[in-house]
């Protein structure tokens, strides 16, 4: 079966985020960018499905500026077979991203679409669910285990208080949580090979999707900072402070 994986180019996980002085957003100039960590888990899961003989082809799609092709190449180096780049320099919000992915799904007709549960920039946690709703597919969100059996997939989900397992008809959407797998690193030979793998480019216009944002960002501010308190000498003093000063125990 064909698996479609969506990946997003975001600020690198380890970069310290700085708000622009004019409060218009976060400063991304000359900042290291990378594949969203949850998307890495999505790519890894697709590659494992292929290694098990469940997936036959992995198509990776990314929406964003020209530079997002770097993240597609990374996915190709990790084991995806070909890439689709939906190129735009405009801001793409979740609903519009879901509509673009729906257009790609209609062309590619994958049996499964795997996405990260959220991106670490906008922290929305929406696109996979929106894509599932727009295409009428079932969804296994926050997945910690994915088992394909014939025309169905069992997805174990991380929910408040524990785990829940669902059975979904294929095609289905899966969004990844942290414990689903541990992504591998791309080897140098595979990085070289990835450069020769096919990568098609398209645009929101080609796909017939209006990507005008519905949400307007009024301002972006740095969070109120918390001040460091005091250091205590020992455990007895800690307990005394918590009981008699902070009065929280």
């Amino acid at each position: 079966m064909k698996v479609l994986v969506a990946v997003k180019r975001v600020i690198d996980y380890n970069v310290k985020v700085r708000v622009k002085p004019d409060n218009s957003g976060v400063d991304l100039a000359n900042v290291k960018m990378a594949m969203n960590p949850f998307c890495e888990i999505a790519v890894e899961e697709a590659v494992r499905l292929k290694e098990k003989g469940v997936a036959s082809e992995i198509v990776v799609v990314s929406i964003g500026p020209k530079a997002a092709q770097e993240q597609i190449r990374t996915a190709l180096a990790l084991g995806a077979d070909r890439g689709i780049h939906v190129q735009t320099d405009e801001e793409v919000q979740s609903l519009e991203a879901a509509k673009l992915l729906k257009a790609v799904v209609e062309k590619e007709e994958p049996k499964m679409v795997i996405l990260g549960k959220q991106s670490i920039d906008s922290d929305n946690n929406q696109t996979g669910q929106m894509l599932a709703a727009l295409t009428g597919m079932g969804q296994g969100t926050f997945a910690s285990e994915v088992v394909v059996e014939g025309e169905k997939v069992n997805v174990t989900r991380e929910i408040d208080g524990g785990l829940m397992t669902l059975s979904l008809d294929l095609p289905a959407v899966v969004t990844t949580d942290l414990r689903l797998n541990e992504p591998r690193y791309a080897s140098l030979p595979n990085i070289m090979k990835a450069k020769k793998k096919p990568l098609d480019a398209t645009t929101p216009d080609d796909l017939g999707v209006d990507i005008s944002p519905r949400l307007e960002t009024v301002k972006v501010e740095a969070p109120a900072s918390r001040k460091a308190g005091i250091m205590v000498e020992d455990v007895a003093q800690l307990v005394d402070k918590l009981k008699n000063e902070a009065k929280v125990i």
Partner: peptide
């Protein structure tokens, strides 16, 4: 914004063709 709301609310937004404001 628990795991239930995070799961189904974006579907509501998509079905109504509106954006969701998360969290």
């Amino acid at each position: 914004a628990g795991t239930t709301g995070k799961d189904f609310m974006p579907r509501v937004a998509a079905l109504l063709d509106v954006a969701q404001v998360s969290d």
